[in-house]
């Protein structure tokens, strides 16, 4: 038997999310004795997955399947499940995987659980923990079907290196390519050279306390120094100060970086719901009563326009000494 992961690519290479899935699968396989198999599409460096415990990579090399199509990809994943006798399939929480998830579940007749944050518990039946109520609760969820599909919450398990000997196989099952005609991608706009928000290890986020879009220079500089992505609160996106893609919270993106720095954000319940999966949170706010101080790990009471520039200088000095 095997555990199958869908290894997404980023700029052609194995994505961070794929490494996390491999790490999860490896940790579970060490208990069950299963093989870990990955399926990828035109991965340039499939061998890298061996580092994270993958025994075999099925790499689809058909050029027509290079670009994501939820139906075609789900079909290939089903073929891989059949070929490898996989009982458990793992996908990440990227937009593509969220899109394909329900289709895969139907193709393989699997019980499907999203936002999974733990390995299956040791018990007589299969139970995983998942986030519900936008991170305000955790549900222990049993999957009762023979095949199981898990969507792993980003950065909840982490990446662990555990090298094994692996092999790469070209994998090109027959697929009905007419789905690409019914779904023609006519344009792609992508910000390049920036860390995608949901993949970022560090996020610098700012709110209405910054007063206006012209003041974001220091937020971007702080993010640069830290190699971080930038985010914002909902009103900031609604006011058009920042692009909508940066809006985090209950109605925006859910993020779970290792470090979240909140500048001039009050910490409303809807904001916290999207960010409280972060490992550490720093708050900079001039109001000592701001609710965010109740949720954070480290707090600074002070004017952002004074604290942030100073912090940038200190961090530059710190980085220079490293």
């Amino acid at each position: 038997m095997s555990i199958l992961i869908y290894a997404e690519k980023q700029n052609g290479k194995v994505s961070k999310g794929a490494k996390e899935l491999a790490s999860y699968a490896r940790a579970y396989a060490d208990k069950t004795g299963d093989q870990v198999v990955a399926v990828g599409f035109s991965l340039e460096n499939p061998e890298e997955l061996f580092q994270y415990g993958v025994n075999k990579v099925l790499n689809v090399t058909n050029d027509k399947l290079k670009d994501f199509n939820a139906f075609a990809y789900s079909h290939v994943i089903k073929e891989a499940v059949d070929k490898e006798n996989s009982k458990m399939v793992l996908i990440s929480s990227s937009n593509d995987s969220i899109y394909a998830g329900p289709i895969i579940a139907q193709y393989i007749d699997a019980g499907y659980v999203s936002n999974v944050i733990s390995l299956p518990e040791d018990s007589d039946h299969f139970v995983v923990k998942r986030k519900v109520f936008t991170s305000k609760g955790i549900a222990y969820t049993a999957i009762l079907t023979d095949k199981k599909l898990l969507r792993i919450s980003k950065n909840s398990f982490g990446i662990a290196e555990k090298a094994v000997d692996g092999s790469v196989e070209e994998f090109n099952p027959p697929v009905d390519l007419s789905v690409y005609d019914e779904y023609k991608v006519v344009n792609v706009e992508k910000v390049t050279g920036k860390v995608p928000l949901t993949d970022a290890d560090i996020i610098v986020s700012a709110g209405r306390g910054l007063k206006g879009p012209e003041n974001w220079g220091m937020i971007e500089e702080l993010a640069d120094v830290l190699g971080a992505a930038t985010a914002c609160s909902k009103p900031v996106a609604d006011l058009g100060w920042r692009p909508h893609q940066e809006h985090v919270g209950q109605t925006g993106k859910q993020v779970a970086p290792n470090l979240y720095i909140a500048v001039g954000i009050s910490g409303a319940i809807q904001h916290l719901a999207g960010v409280n999966g972060s490992k550490y949170m720093v708050v900079i706010n001039n109001d000592p009563e701001a609710p965010f101080f109740k949720a954070a790990d480290y707090g600074i009471v002070g004017d952002a326009f004074e604290v942030v520039p100073k912090l940038i200088e200190k961090l530059k000095a710190y980085k220079a000494n490293q």
């Binding site: 699997a110 019980g111 499907y112 659980v113 139970v127 986030k131 519900v132 991170s135 305000k136 609760g137 955790i138 549900a139 222990y140 969820t141 049993a142 999957i143 009762l144 079907t145 409280n276 708050v283 101080f293 109740k294 949720a295 954070a296 790990d297 480290y298 707090g299 600074i300 009471v301 002070g302 004074e306 604290v307 100073k310 912090l311 200190k314």
Partner: peptide, 25 residues
């Protein structure tokens, strides 16, 4: 019935916050 919630819990509460003086970054 394909999946079933057996129980809920609340996420672990954060430990108390450490306050840092703005002049001691």
């Amino acid at each position: 019935v394909r999946t079933k919630i057996e129980k809920f819990e609340k996420p672990p509460v954060k430990g108390s916050i450490k306050m840092i003086d703005k002049d001691n970054l």
